[in-house]
Each structure stands twice: as C-alpha cells, then as structure tokens.
Design a protein around this nucleic acid. Structure first.
Length: 436
RNA sequence: GGGAGCGUGGCGCAACUGGCUAGCGCACUGGGUUGUGGUCCCAGGGGUUGCGGGUUCGAGCCCCGUCGCUCCUCCCA
C-alpha cells in the first residue's frame, strides 16, 4: 500500500453512505419541523474566533486545533465546532439587526487533533441547532426536544438525558470558590491532575474519574445549589417545562461542559452502546458568547451531535435504517446489434428518469446477469437478435424471478417501471440490499 | 498527553518451541460450447508478512525503532 489516509481521517465508502444520507435527511427534516434554517459556514476560520469564542483555557483551543498559517502568515484553523462560526455569521451578515431572533442548524465536518479511537476521529461530523436571541426557558426545552425527536425518528431508544445548570458568569466565579473551599482540606490525597485543576479551574475536578477523587467529588456541592436567584428560577422553569412535555431527564450536578462559553442550562444525551465515548450529543446556553464575539448582548442556546457516533450506535442495533437506492434496470446486451440497441435504449430511458446501466466490459451473458444481481438491480432485460427483431422483450424481476412482456420502446419500459415504483419505495429500506 | 494490546493478499483468518516455493475461506477473473443470476464444479490472478534496522546458518514468529489500528485513561461529539 503506497498511500494511506491521514491519521484520524477516514473514508466513508459507498456501502456506508446510505446510512449517512439517511441521517442527514432526518436531521434536515426534524430541523425544518421546528423551523430551524440551514446555514453552511466555511470549514476554515481565523484562529482567533475559536480562541476567543471557545476559551483559551479549554482543551480544544489549548491542544486540539488544526492550526496553520496561510500564505500571508495569518493564523487559520479548521473548525473544531460550529457554534462560534454560526455566531460569527450571525453578526457578520447583520442578522442580529435584520431579525435578532434566529433559529439555525448546520451539518458538516469538524476537526480536532486528538488521539483517535472508536467514536473519536480527527475529522468527525456534527449536526447541530442554534437558537439565538431569546432567554426564554421554553427555548431551552425546544432545543432538547429537537434532539429527542431526531433520536426518535431514527428509532433510537434507551438514551438518557443528563441535565444541569451551571449558572451565569457571576455564578461561575462564586461556585468556583465554593468548590475550591470544599476540596481544600482533602486535595493532597487526590490525583495530581486534580491538584492542578484545583488551582486552575476547580470545575474540571467534577469530571475526574480517578478512584482517589471520587469520594470528595461525591460530597461536593452541586452547581445547582449555588445559582443566583434569576438563574435558579430559569432552571426551575426549564425543569417544569421538560416534565410538562414528558421529557425525562436526570440532574447531574457534575455535568460541566468543556467549552467556556456555556452558561445556565447544559445537557448531554448519552448512549450505553458507546463505551468511553458515550456522549451522543451535548449542548446548552451560551448567553455571553455573542457579546464576547463583538455583538450586542444576546443570549443563545443550542446543541451539537456527533454523526459518526450516531451511525455507530445505529449500526449496532438491528435493522438500522439506511437509505438503499437500487438500480431500476440492467440491460443485458448480446452481440454487436444488441449492444448498439442497448446503448441507445439506455440513453433514452435515462432521459425518462429511469436509472439504467449495462455491461462495459464485454462480458458473457451469464456474467452480465450475475453482475446485475450483485449490484442489486431491480429488473433485468436481455437484448439480443430475437428481441430486437420482434421489438418485444421480457422484463424480469430479479428478486422474484417473475417475467413480464414489454414492448421495446422507452415509453413502454419507463411506464412498466413507474408502475412498480410505489411498491419499491414502500419496501426498499428493509428489503435485501445489494452486496450482502 | 499517560497505560495496554495488535498489524499476514481487498476482507476474515492459519502457519508446531524461529526451519522447505507463506496456506485457507470470502471476494475477484475466466471456463463448464454467446439466451438467463443468487447453488455447484474446474482453472486463474493477487502478499518483498505495515515500514526500517538488528540477532541468527535461517525471522511472519525474537529484539529495537517507527507508522498505524483497537481498548482504557483523558477529553468530548
């Protein structure tokens, strides 16, 4: 093997693409259902957008970005997430002036320089929604509902929602001190990482999984108990509305997300099927981000989900829904005459919107048919002297073996196929797929 | 970033304590006298054993390095 893909980047081959397009379609359908509109920011941004937006002190900015200089020496970065880009676009194009309240969604590749493992590659794909311009608790709940609805539409049950509120910027400062005080007298018996975190950002201690630290963490006060009056009220309302909508959740006082811009509501949807990389999607409020990036004080809330992980989970469950587009018709050409006839017929049928293919390698009849079968063609039509002379052929259904006479005109064949389309569409996603 | 394991044709695997031209299944190609597939039979192509060094009479097997993958940790999607 002479070349291989760059570490942490992988090919999505034709066999898998069906699952991807299906998930993408569902994301778009659900987003539209809730009136979120698609936005497509570029993949490369000025490095500063992320270091400002996501936070200098975060792991993402500190050590996980694909950053490089352009030809004029400006520092550019492959986006590690999309929220900062969406907010940048929101401000750059004056959306905040035209209509400050915007509901947007996106879909696409993100890049983080991490050690690759299952469910975590350096180029990965996220979908996400952002609702910018309102502090209303019902919007937090709507965003969470979008996530649940999407999972439902993919037939994914058995997921759980972890929920927390980390309060506003002022609350963060106070809570940090509360934690620092809590851990102060036992920090010496905790892991080295936590001793560092204790100084830098005690919030991160809550994320630690080291056995030595668990006791102290379990006894730590939750952020929920240290919210200011307004944040507490906001969170209570979020919870009330979630319950009202019958969306179950579990309060997790240890849930602190890795991006600095989060405020108030934070949440994660986790799956048991994913091992260490169990977060299927996560999000929350970012009420200070727009202002931090130079805009007017504007609240926002959103989430991002990992498509790669989602597809991994779908694949592990039985009957994963995958788009399965099968070729309508394969023409088997016999001899010179048959070949010429088949080429013309192919062109005519394609103009009629019928997907058709034929042999390009001069293979014998038997192999042509075997090939048609292996690529999952729905119908087969043999074109030899007999057919051309009589202007009649036999259309064979590959799955059942049933044959039907047809006139060899594009219109007649296209008609015979369109009669079957409905039946194909209703059974396509579960029926036998090609190459299995 | 730290820890552990693993790299043999496209895929899945085999090769006794280092010992003959590195095998098998699937897939692929051709054929079983150019008119019907998914079964069967025959034949065939394809690997400098991830890469680079070393030890040895001899290395797919041992040692070192390197690259990659997997899992845990970390982080998150």
């Amino acid at each position: 093997m002479t070349y291989e893909a760059v570490r942490g980047m992988r090919d999505i081959l034709p066999e898998e693409v069906g699952c991807w397009t299906l998930v993408e379609e569902r994301v778009r359908d659900v987003a539209r259902l809730y009136n979120y509109r698609e936005i497509r920011p570029p993949i490369v941004e000025h490095t500063e957008l992320f270091s400002r937006g996501i936070g200098e002190a975060t792991d993402i900015v500190g050590k996980e970005m694909f950053t490089f200089p352009d030809k004029k020496g400006r520092s550019l970065t492959l986006r590690p997430e999309a929220t900062a880009s969406v907010v940048r676009a929101y401000l750059e194009h004056g959306l905040h002036v035209k209509e400050p309240f915007q509901k947007l969604f996106y879909l696409g590749p993100m890049f983080r320089y991490e050690k690759p493992q299952k469910g975590r590659s350096r180029q990965f794909h996220q979908y996400g929604v952002e609702a910018i311009g309102s502090l209303d608790s019902s919007l937090d709940v709507e965003v969470i509902e979008v996530a649940w609805t999407l999972m439902d539409s993919l037939g994914l049950g058995g997921l759980s929602l972890r929920l927390n509120s980390i309060g506003c910027a002022q609350d963060h400062g106070r809570y940090r001190e509360v934690l620092r005080a809590h851990f102060a007298d036992r920090i010496t018996s905790m892991c080295p990482d936590c001793q560092r975190r204790h100084k830098e950002n005690p919030l991160r201690i809550l994320d630690c999984k080291d056995a030595r630290c668990q006791e102290a963490i379990a006894a730590a006060p939750g952020s929920v108990d240290h919210l200011c009056e307004e944040c507490a009220r906001h969170f209570a309302e979020v919870r009330r509305l979630l319950e009202h909508a019958s969306l179950s959740y579990r309060i997790d006082g240890r849930l602190v997300r890795g991006l600095d811009y989060y405020t108030r509501t934070v949440f994660e949807l986790v799956s048991q099927d994913l091992g260490a990389q169990d977060a299927l999607l996560g999000g929350g409020r970012y009420d200070d981000l727009v202002a931090k990036l130079g805009g007017p004080p504007t609240p926002g809330v959103g989430f991002a989900g990992g498509m790669d992980r989602l597809i991994l989970v779908l694949a592990e469950r039985a009957n994963a829904p995958c788009a399965d587009e099968r070729l309508n018709l394969f023409l088997v050409a016999l001899g010179e005459k048959g070949r010429a006839f088949a080429l013309d017929l192919t062109r005519a049928l394609r103009r009629e919107g019928v997907s058709v293919d034929l042999d390009y390698r001069g293979r014998p009849l038997r192999k042509q048919i075997a090939y048609a079968d292996s690529i999952g063609a729905r119908l087969l039509l043999v074109l030899g002297e007999n057919e051309i002379e009589s202007a009649k052929g036999r259309l064979k259904e590959m799955d059942s073996g049933v044959e039907e006479d047809v006139a060899l005109t594009p219109a007649a064949i296209a008609d015979a196929i369109s009669r079957r389309r409905e039946e194909w569409n209703s059974s396509s996603s579960q029926s036998k797929s090609p190459r299995t």
